[in-house]
Structure formats: C-alpha cells, structure tokens
Design a protein around this nucleic acid. Structure first.
Length: 254
DNA sequence: ATGACTCCCAGTGGGAGA
C-alpha cells in the first residue's frame, strides 16, 4: 500500500491537480495541508467521485487539513486533543489498521516572533499526544508539512540558513524528540539523491535552480518500519504551470 | 537587497507563507 502527504497551498486552486495526481498515483491514503477552505466549501463530492472517502477540517484563508483514503478512516480526531487551538492543523484516523496522522505544523515565521513561541508550544503538545497515540496504536504514520528541515543536508544553503526558521536548534530538537518516541524518517531509510527537497520558494527561480528545503516528512513507528519498502518525493507536480510550492512525499508499505 | 512569487481577503494594498 502507499501513503502520501502533500501541502497543496489552497485546495480550491489545486483540486484539479490533486485529482490528476491521484489518477496517476492511486495511493491508498493521501493527507493534504493548507486546504484553506471552511468545511462548507470543501470539495467532498469531487473527491468521493474519484474513489476516495474523505475527512476534512478547515478554516478560512489559512491552514486546513484533509485525509483521503480508499477505505474509510475510523476513529477520526481533529486537532490535538486537550490542546486549545484556533488553527486547523491536524487530522487523524485509522485506515486499514494503520493510525494515520496528517499534520500542518506551524511555520513559526521567525525565531524571535510570537509565532515561534506558538510553534514550540504546539510541538510540545503534539509530542505528548503522540506518545499516547503510539501506546494505543503501535502501527502509526505521522506525515505532513513539518516546517522543519531536520538536518543540514535538508537545506540548500545550510550556512546561509543557520539558525533561521525551519533550521533552528529548538525545531530540530523537537524533530529528534519525535524520533525519540520510536518514529523514523522513512525517506532516510533509503539511499536518496543529494539535494532532495520537498519545497521550493516561488521566488528566485528556486525550482529551476533546485534551491529548496526538505520539510515535508513521513515518520513511521517502530512496529511499522519492517513494512516500509520505499519512500520518495514526487517532483513532477512542482513542474506544473500553476504548482503548489510543495511536492508530494510517498511511502510504500507491504 | 527590507526584493523576487502566490494565495487570500480585501478592495485599487497588505499579510502570510517558508
């Protein structure tokens, strides 16, 4: 089976691309971030017509997440239980026995900003919840737009971006905290091309120059790790004439 | 280089993203 994550940067703009991508890549599960749609405007019928059940949780202008699956998700959770959050960032469900958590991590804007404080608090809450989720659901996937580049090899200019947002010591420590819960970065289980990114700035001809960051991730639990066969970033949608700034990440399980 | 692009809500500009 295949599970994928994609930050679409507005589902109303990108819906045709999502449907085209699913036709070419008939994954079992796809989580979306930055749908930027209130639930009353979510294109549920079009997604169901493509053969997917869908759970969604959004808001106007910002954030918004969705969980698409061939088989319906069970025990759906929206946002982090017990963490009071005005922003729609998390959707979780159990699909084919795999606890699937789709997340749009806060951006954080700048290390000296209030948004960075919010990001760190959100990361604390996520880790505490995940610890309990892993106890309840050993077979677990955490995937989405983490807005964290875990390592210098995930950054096109690690010197220039040292200490900048996505690359700070605090953010990277939180990423390692998730690893400490027993999760592993599926992409790094395999040999990968150098300069593999999942996001490229719209500006500066960044995609053509391959200047980007790897900030979209799929983490798998220890119990699921033996089933992981492959993981890759699909750059093709980024070549579309009106692309999202992020590319999908796909993991293959037995 | 306090830039660059895209989206959104707004409303003929500005915030946010990363």
């Amino acid at each position: 089976m295949q599970f994928a994550t994609w930050n679409v940067n507005s589902l109303s703009v990108r819906l045709p691309q999502v449907l085209d991508w699913l036709a070419l890549n008939p994954v079992d599960v796809l989580v979306l971030q930055e749908t930027k749609l209130t639930d009353d405007k979510f294109p549920q019928a079009a997604i169901e017509a493509a053969g997917y059940a869908v759970q969604f949780f959004g808001q106007k202008t910002y954030n918004g997440v969705a969980l698409l699956s061939r088989n319906a998700a069970q025990d759906v959770v929206k946002n982090i239980p017990g963490f009071d959050d005005a922003q729609a960032r998390v959707i979780a469900g159990t699909v084919d026995g795999v606890r699937t958590i789709g997340c749009y991590f806060p951006n954080g804007q700048a290390p000296d900003s209030d948004k960075f404080v919010y990001k760190l608090g959100w990361l604390d809450a996520l880790a505490a919840w995940l610890k309990a989720e892993l106890q309840a659901h050993p077979q677990l996937l955490l995937m989405g737009d983490f807005n964290i580049a875990p390592d210098d090899r995930d950054v096109y200019d690690p010197i220039g971006m040292e200490g900048q947002i996505h690359c700070t010591t605090e953010e990277r420590a939180h990423f390692q905290g998730l690893v400490g819960l027993g999760l592993v970065d599926a992409f790094r289980l395999f040999e990968q091309p150098a300069k593999s990114w999942s996001w490229w700035d719209y500006r500066n001809l960044a995609f053509r120059r391959n200047q980007g960051l790897r900030i979209d991730h799929i983490l798998v639990s220890a119990a699921l790790r033996p089933r992981v066969q492959a993981c890759h970033i699909d750059k093709l949608p980024r070549k579309h004439e009106r692309p999202s700034d992020h590319a999908p990440v796909v993991v293959t399980l037995t």
